[in-house]
Structure formats: structure tokens, C-alpha cells
């Protein structure tokens, strides 16, 4: 095995060049002024102070809200779906999980445009409602449209880890629970759910991470006025050109995410540790 270890070296070089250095650059940008040029930099903490501005605080809170709602809906739908799938025989399960992942083969942008043609004022749903005589309603550019798009986009990231946890679970534990007098509901909460907690935590982490930093979906389904953290960062780099502020927001987001991952891992181990 030893001589295979040297095979990791190209990867180390690669990740240093493409991950570590860019990260360090973001850190550097976030604590300096002077725009995109690295020649005349000045160190400052102004970029971070700017975030305290109520406008930006609003964006952070809104992102957090949308992220939490999306994650919660994904948890409810994803757990149900994973639970139902895990009840089928093994070969059927593989097929069903494949169906869950099929949307991921198609670019997010395309899938989101598909939602536009469904939801827009002259879209499929509204023409249908109009035919029925219910009348048109505005679905586009609302929280509902954004959350709908995000839930559909991120659901597989919840289903797959939970399904994995449920599928590899020792089925005799369920039988043992029935055997000891627990009915279906009691068995689910006292045994099945407890055993699936690691999968739930993985799913929560992934969906929350992705939902809080996305920018394509809020931009397309929320419209130009709909700004989440992801859009804020995108704007700083693409249209405003304030790379320093953009880097500061990215950094804060990254740190916030790291803290959340750390906290969920902490809950995970204490759940497993209460023996």
C-alpha cells in the first residue's frame, strides 16, 4: 500500500493551487481596500463594518429564514420519501433512488427556467387556472416561488443520506421493538428515527448549506429585487465590482456555515453518546 501514497501528491498540489490560495486571497481581499489591484492595498476592517448596515442585515436574516424554511420542508418531504422508498425490495429501491437523482443530471439553470414557464403570469399553471375560471394569480417573484424552486432543487440532498441510513439499518431492531410491545408509531419514534439521525443530520447540513448560499434560484424566481446572501455576493463581484466587500460577506457566510456544521456534529455525537 505504501507506494500508492505518493499518488496523493498531485492532488495536494492541485488543491493548494485551486483551493487554499484562492481562499487566502479572499481573506486578503476582505481585510483590504484598493479594489481588484493587489499593488496598492491598505489594511482595513471597514468591509466587515459595512455588513452591520440594516439593509445588509435584512438580507442576512431573509437568507436565514428562506434557508431554514427550505431545509424544514426538505426534511419533511425528504424523510417521508426516503422512508417510503426504504420499504421496497432492494432492487426497486435502487431504481427509485435513481429517479430521485435524475433531476440532478440537468443543469440547475435549465430546471429553474422550467419553473418560470410553469409559474409565470402567462405560464402553464395560470393558463390552466384561467381556463377553470379561477383567474390568474401572481406566483412568480414571491417567497413561495423561491422556496418551491429551492425545495425541488435540493430535495435529493436530503433523500439520499436519510435513505442510506434507513437502508443499512438492522431490520431485526424494528422486529425487536414490535416484539417488546411497541406499535408502529412507537417503533418509528423510538427506534427507526433514532437510528436514522446521522442521515438526517447529513441531509440537514447539506440542504441548509446549499440553500443559504444559492443565487441562481432567487435571481430567476425571486426577480431583481429579491436579494439573498448569494445574490449579494454575486452582485459585489459581477456588477458592483467591490471585491473587498464581496470577500468579506463570503468569509462571514463561510464562518457561519462552519459553526453550524460544527454544532450539528456536536449534537450528533452527543445523541450517540447518551448511553
Amino acid at each position: 500500500m505504501r507506494h500508492f501514497k505518493s499518488l496523493i501528491r498531485p492532488y495536494l498540489v492541485w488543491s493548494f493551487l485551486l483551493i487554499i490560495i484562492p481562499l487566502l486571497l479572499i481573506v486578503l481581499y476582505s481585510v483590504t481596500t484598493g479594489g481588484n489591484s493587489l499593488l496598492n492595498i491598505q489594511f482595513t476592517l471597514d468591509n466587515f463594518k459595512k455588513i452591520a448596515d440594516p439593509i445588509y442585515r435584512q438580507v442576512f436574516l431573509r437568507s436565514l429564514k428562506i434557508g431554514l424554511i427550505t431545509t424544514l420542508i426538505c426534511l419533511l418531504l425528504g424523510y417521508t420519501l426516503a422512508y417510503v422508498i426504504s420499504g421496497f425490495r432492494e432492487r426497486t429501491q435502487t431504481t427509485l433512488i435513481l429517479f430521485v437523482t435524475i433531476p440532478m443530471w440537468i443543469n440547475t439553470l435549465l430546471r429553474t427556467y422550467a419553473w418560470i414557464s410553469l409559474l409565470s403570469d402567462n405560464g402553464v399553471i395560470n393558463s390552466f387556472l384561467n381556463r377553470l375560471g379561477i383567474g390568474r394569480m401572481s406566483i412568480m417573484y414571491t417567497d413561495f416561488a423561491v422556496i418551491l424552486g429551492m425545495v425541488c432543487d435540493l430535495l435529493p440532498f436530503m433523500v439520499i443520506p436519510i435513505h442510506t441510513a434507513l437502508a443499512k439499518m438492522d431490520k431485526s431492531l424494528i422486529e425487536a421493538s414490535y416484539d417488546l410491545g411497541a406499535n408502529r408509531r412507537q417503533t418509528f419514534w423510538k427506534v427507526t428515527f433514532k437510528l436514522s439521525i446521522p442521515g438526517v443530520i447529513n441531509g440537514l447540513t447539506m440542504v441548509f448549506l446549499l440553500s443559504i448560499s444559492t443565487f441562481v434560484i432567487p435571481k430567476l424566481l425571486g426577480g431583481g429585487q429579491y436579494v439573498l446572501i448569494g445574490n449579494l455576493i454575486e452582485k459585489q463581484f459581477i456588477s458592483v465590482g467591490d471585491w473587498n466587500f464581496g470577500s468579506a460577506i463570503s468569509l462571514i457566510l463561510a464562518v457561519a456555515i462552519l459553526i453550524m456544521i460544527w454544532a450539528t456534529k456536536k449534537i450528533d455525537t452527543s445523541e450517540g453518546g447518551e448511553r
Partner: peptide, 12 residues
């Protein structure tokens, strides 16, 4: 009640 082949004790 049953004693299972691999005991099926609740690990948590």
C-alpha cells in the same frame, strides 16, 4: 417475546 439470533439490542 423473542431472543434474536444476533440479539438485536438497541445500540443507542
Amino acid at each position: 417475546n423473542t431472543v434474536f439470533q444476533k440479539y438485536a439490542l438497541f445500540p443507542f
